[in-house]
Write a protein that binds this DNA or RNA. Structure first.
Lengths: 205, 205
DNA sequence: CACCCTAAGTGAACACCGTTCACACACTGT
DNA sequence: ACAGTGTGTGAACGGTGTTCACTTAGGGTG
C-alpha cells in the first residue's frame, strides 16, 4: 500500500491527513495487529506530529470508528460483488464472502466489532453494520429498505449469527489454527451448507 | 464482590495476590469495560504496588490469559449445570446458557476471545476453549473425549458458530441494542430453535 | 496586490500506562 | 539464631493519548 506522505514535496500542510491516517491504521493493523495500532505510530508513519491527528478526529476512538466504518463498507461491497457472480446459492455465496474477507483482513474484521474502541452511536457506523446484516439476510440487498434490525426473522438472524460466529472463531484463533486459508474456507463452505435445511422453511418472523 | 485486601490487618505480605488480581480484573472489567482494565488499576484496587503483580504473572498478557481461562471454565460449568435441568432439548439448553452467560458477563465473554491480549498457546487456555466447543457439539459433555477440533462435524461446527456468533453480536452491540436481557434471550431462543432442521440429520462429518 | 482570517500544522507538557530493577521485609527450616 | 527464599516496595524508563499555546500556509476580500 502506498501511503500519501505529503501534499507536494515537503510542505507544511499535508493536504489529506484524514485519509492518510485511515490508511496508516490499516497498514499498522494488518502488519502488527489491531492492539498495536497507536496514534503516535500512525502519525510517525505519515511523517506528521502526533497532535496533528486531533485536527481531523476528536480522539482515537473517532479514528477507529471511521476505520471500522470503512472496513464494513469494504466488506459489504465485496459481498455484493460476490453475489453477482452467483455460481452458488446466494446465501452461501454472500456468507463465504463474509468469511473470506475476515480471513484475509483479520485486523479489519476485529476492528469492525471492537465496540469498546468504537463510538457505536456514530450514524455512519450504525448504518454500515446494519447493512451487513441485511445483506446476509436474504441475498436481496437492493430491495432491502432501511429496515429496523428487529424485523429480521429468526432464520435471517440465524444466518447472520452463523456466518459471523464462524468468522469470529477463525479470526480469534479458536478454530482451525492448523489450517491454511483454503482449508478454512472449505470448512466454512461445509458448515454453511449445513444451514440449508434451516433456511429452506422461510416463513416470515 | 468482596476483594481480598490483605492477609491479616495490614501486613507486608498479602497472602493471595494472584487470586486477588484475578478478582480485581473481573471487578474492573465488569464495571468499566475490558479495555479500561489496567495493571496499575488492579494493584491500586487491592492496595498493593504495581510491581507486585509481576511476582505472580510474567506480564499483563499472562494475567489476562488466566482471567480468560477462568471465564471459560465458569461458562462451561454453567452450561453443564443448565444441561442437567434438561427442560428443553440439550442443545438449546446448552446454547442458551452460552448466550445468557455472555449477556450477564459481557466483559468476561470478550476477554475469552480477545486473542491479541491472550497467550493462545497457554495449555490451560487452549483446553478450556476447546472444551467449550465440545460441550456445544452435541450435549453429551461427559462422553466427549479430548477430541481434536478437526473432528467436529459440520453440524457441530455450525452449532458452535451460531451460538457464538449470536452472543457476539449481542455483546458487541450490533444486535438488540434496544432490548432488555429477557428480550434478547427470547430472540436467542427463537433463533437457535430455527437451527433444529439442520441438526436433525446428524451424520458424522 | 496587500491584508487578515482560518484551517491545519508544530512542539512541549501532562498524567497514565506496562515493565524493570535494586532493595526491604517476613516467613521457613535448620 | 540465622541464612535463604519468596513476596512486597519505590523509583525509574520509555511509550501512550490528549491538551494547549504557537506558527504557518493559503484563500477571500478590500
Amino acid at each position: 500500500m502506498r501511503l500519501i506522505l505529503r501534499h507536494k514535496s515537503s510542505r507544511y500542510h499535508h493536504g489529506s491527513l484524514a485519509e492518510s491516517l485511515l490508511e496508516a491504521v490499516e497498514e499498522l493493523a494488518e502488519r502488527f495487529g489491531l492492539e498495536a495500532v497507536t496514534l503516535r505510530g500512525c502519525a510517525k508513519l505519515i511523517g506528521v506530529a502526533p497532535s496533528a491527528a486531533f485536527k481531523h478526529y476528536r480522539d482515537k476512538r473517532a479514528l477507529f470508528t471511521a476505520f471500522a466504518t470503512r472496513a464494513l463498507n469494504l466488506m459489504a461491497q465485496r459481498m455484493i460483488d460476490q453475489r453477482a457472480k452467483a455460481e452458488e446459492p446466494p446465501f452461501l455465496e454472500v456468507g463465504l464472502a463474509y468469511v473470506s474477507f475476515g480471513l484475509e483482513h483479520p485486523a479489519m474484521f476485529q476492528a469492525m466489532w471492537r465496540s469498546e474502541m468504537l463510538n457505536p452511536h456514530d450514524p455512519d457506523y450504525r448504518q454500515a453494520s446494519q447493512r451487513l446484516g441485511a445483506l446476509l439476510a436474504g441475498g436481496f440487498a437492493d430491495s432491502v429498505p432501511d429496515s429496523d434490525q428487529r424485523k429480521l426473522s429468526p432464520q435471517e438472524l440465524l444466518a447472520w449469527s452463523s456466518v459471523h460466529g464462524l468468522t469470529g472463531l477463525f479470526v480469534e484463533g479458536a478454530l482451525g489454527s492448523g489450517l491454511d486459508q483454503e482449508g478454512k474456507l472449505a470448512h466454512a463452505r461445509a458448515t454453511l451448507a449445513a444451514l440449508g435445511p434451516s433456511l429452506a422453511s422461510k416463513a416470515a418472523g
